[in-house]
Design a protein around this nucleic acid. Sequence first.
DNA 1: GATAAATTTAACCGAGCGACCAGTTAATTT
DNA 2: AAATTAACTGGTCGCTCGGTTAAATTTATC
Lengths: 200, 200
Amino acid sequence: MAEKNAREKILKAADRLFGEIGFDAATTREIARKSGANKALIYYHFKNKEALFEAVFESYYQRLTETLQAPLMEQGDLRERMGRLIDTYIDFLSKNRNFARIVQREASGGRRRDTIRDHMIPVFKMGREIIREAYPKTRAGDLAAEQLLITFYGMIITYFNYSGVLESLLGDDPLSKKNIKLRKEHIAKMLDIVLDTIDS
Amino acid sequence: MAEKNAREKILKAADRLFGEIGFDAATTREIARKSGANKALIYYHFKNKEALFEAVFESYYQRLTETLQAPLMEQGDLRERMGRLIDTYIDFLSKNRNFARIVQREASGGRRRDTIRDHMIPVFKMGREIIREAYPKTRAGDLAAEQLLITFYGMIITYFNYSGVLESLLGDDPLSKKNIKLRKEHIAKMLDIVLDTIDS
DNA sequence: GATAAATTTAACCGAGCGACCAGTTAATTT
DNA sequence: AAATTAACTGGTCGCTCGGTTAAATTTATC
């Protein structure tokens, strides 16, 4: 299938398979089949399977950091900026379901864990700085920036990672527009509550 | 190694490998090697690799539900009971690091997802009932029981799943006694804040 | 201490894996 | 139009996988 851009097609098929069944279960044969490319072509464009994975993940990370720039650059107080950041992140995960799946699955061990961790650390540090910016005294203890960061990150990511379980709790598709909106409102409310407490 | 209990040793080695590198990457040969048993012995005790996985997971699930019984049965108001439930769950994850890893990795796809989902659903429903019990009016909207459940569950599980990333944020082992205690305090504080808001 | 049952073993299998290679075609440069 | 490079292909190799077999060894029962 030399009709357009084989490399992109390979990346797309790899993304889909890595997301749906994981790195180990995804075979280069199936990636080739799904992308319409010859199996050897994968090894022409990428050094090996691991490098293909890194290319897929790299592309996600690039889009993610780009996407998160906008809500961070805009003006506004912490409440507004964090609210926008959260909404933007949720939207990104909604549009890139495989990203959440890949991170979730590959982040726990093996060689790929390091790739993922190295990419996620800057994102986390960025998040922490936003929180600290508003509270330069580096508030410690039970509402420290790191604790809040992981708490709000967890609120977001867990919703996507457990959408399968949630379906039987909500009796409804957790990833529908309506339910995503509900989740956003819940997290916004939580943000409100926390910020009110810190302010007072 | 017929010296004591080969079946248990196989289960232990399988648990370790499934947790550290995942179901697909863990080979029956390595499980045999690590447990000191012959590879065929695995197939004597378990139908196949999948059944071995289910046995490992089943054992975790059984211990988990047992462990969670205590804090649920005891008396106290919602604040106390939920606080105890959260602390107990965190303790369980601290002592069973592989459980969190296995759930995280295998919950996203494949045949194992269903095994995990089927086991987790009752736990989630239990959690929801506890929340609802105190607010029988089934409060909907931004502080609905389901939203709170996933929020607090996320606060807990994400801390463990992202301990690798957190290490470079905290500059410290996130799973140390001290930091686990800090995390507990943070979540307890969050619970306080939320319950105060609902009460008022 | 014989015998049957339960357990453990070494040796082996077909299948499928990632990777590679020699060679071809298409595009670009000279 | 010749030469050079980039994109692509069919075939297959070496290896490891999950799983099986049949025989050996240990344990339990009498």
